[in-house]
Design a binder for these strands. Structure first.
Lengths: 242, 242
DNA sequence: TCTTTGGACTGATCCATGTCAGTCGCGGCT
DNA sequence: AGCCGCGACTGACATGGATCAGTCCAAAGA
């Protein structure tokens, strides 16, 4: 257990006391494991749990009638899974583990309990949720208005920033289990084009994505190329330090 | 005051008691008016208020370095403005009134107060926020995977459903103050193409958008054309009734 | 050992949508 | 009355990215 990713993440927003940390701990209930590729939550499912991702990667996506799919976001350790659709009656999306994952279940009732008794923790959780939403928004902007290369660059930078917050990435790069097909479904591109764009970025000496590793060949130029403004992540992450 | 749009909207989720309604009422503070076109909140702004939209339309958008913009969502009466960016330190987007609007300010502290003392109301507000997020997600899916015509059709249907929830629309249609430029910025298209797509939908006898009115010429066929699955709105709206 | 499978990768071609360069009509301003 | 500016609308042309139809390689299974 690499030092509790969720606590690490929330700690970047507010310093949490021992007491608050143990309450946070208390939220975690049953620990479960899921294998890669088998959905945890189905679009349209009525009554499902919410989870905290402890290890591995997952993605949330929606399927269209014609079989296309759009990945809305990837989840990395420390992220919530299915939090929003617990408030709505019906889950509007599916969640699939990208790798084998470990999660802990959280009960909404416990969460609401925390909201009324531990305001600082409540704010921290709301912060995390708002940040997730801000990422979806940024994703929307990217798909709507950035061309394929900028979009890819922006995406890889965002992932890097998120991972570094839980100690899984740095300015040098990070381990990344995503296939080009997954990237395509996330970025609204075809897998073929993802391949071409990755080649282009590599040849320009910006990033290299190969054998499960993303390597930032020239971080600063990449940031400029992608117009990556990370204020929306609301984090003064390790990456800001030169 | 056409019978408090926010109460109308939340009432679609849970029946609120007199007491709860008056607490909801108490959230509304200073009433303010803004003229069309002048931003309420700027991208990057640090310390700003949240509002409830009482009348008129607004939109939230992000600007890119090269001057392009992407509209994330439109807000109609009963919607919150800038709620998310109140939790994050910095607003990640701008909000602009599309028409002249009236809003009431809400203080976050009051809102948190309500969260701890009036659980049902808290759930209702969380529901509204989750629904907004679900709409952004659906929007993302549309931009990523639907072609221009489906996207437009879906968008017009969604607006119709939202408006009907606050009594401003029906299966017949609704008044809509959006220009084709605004539609373009929202749908990730060029204004020229918006025009072409609107013509196409009109010629196919599906919807007509003309002179500030959206008219559903054949609601059912349009729903099918757009693959409009409104479960994500989590509402058993007036539109379901034939 | 041979086969199968999934992921990375490529060239040729096609098409949805963007861009350019306008026209037209209307409401507001002088 | 005349002008201005904005929004709707259009045709011609350009292009980013999709689609098609593959190859190649490594790991897993038989």
């Amino acid at each position: 257990m690499p030092n509790k990713p969720l606590a690490l993440k929330l700690g970047a927003f507010v310093a949490l006391s021992e007491a608050e940390l143990s309450i946070l701990e208390g939220l975690h209930k049953r620990r479960r494991a899921f294998v890669a590729g088998r959905d945890l939550v189905h679009q349209g499912q009525i009554d499902h749990a919410a989870y905290i991702l402890e290890s591995g990667w997952a993605c949330s996506y929606k399927l269209l009638h014609d079989g296309q799919r759009q990945i809305v976001d990837f989840q990395i350790p420390g992220d919530f899974l299915g939090l929003r659709s617990v408030v709505l009656h019906i889950s509007d999306h599916s969640i699939e583990p990208v790798t084998d994952i470990e999660v802990t279940e959280v009960h909404v009732s416990d969460l609401l309990e925390v909201f009324s008794h531990t305001p600082r923790l409540a704010t921290a959780v709301l912060w995390a949720a708002s940040r997730d939403e801000a990422m979806v928004v940024e994703h929307l902007v990217g798909i709507g208005r950035r061309d394929a290369a900028e979009r890819m660059a922006h995406f890889l930078l965002e992932l890097g920033a998120r991972l570094s917050l839980v100690g899984l990435g740095s300015r040098a790069g990070y381990a990344c289990p995503l296939t080009q097909y997954l990237l395509a479904d996330a970025l609204g591109l075809s897998a073929v084009h993802v391949n071409r764009v990755l080649r282009q970025l590599r040849e320009q000496g910006l990033v290299t994505f190969r054998d499960g590793f993303v390597t930032f060949d020239d971080y600063d130029r990449l940031v400029e190329f992608a117009d990556f403004e990370m204020t929306y992540l609301d984090q003064v992450g390790p990456l800001l330090a030169k």
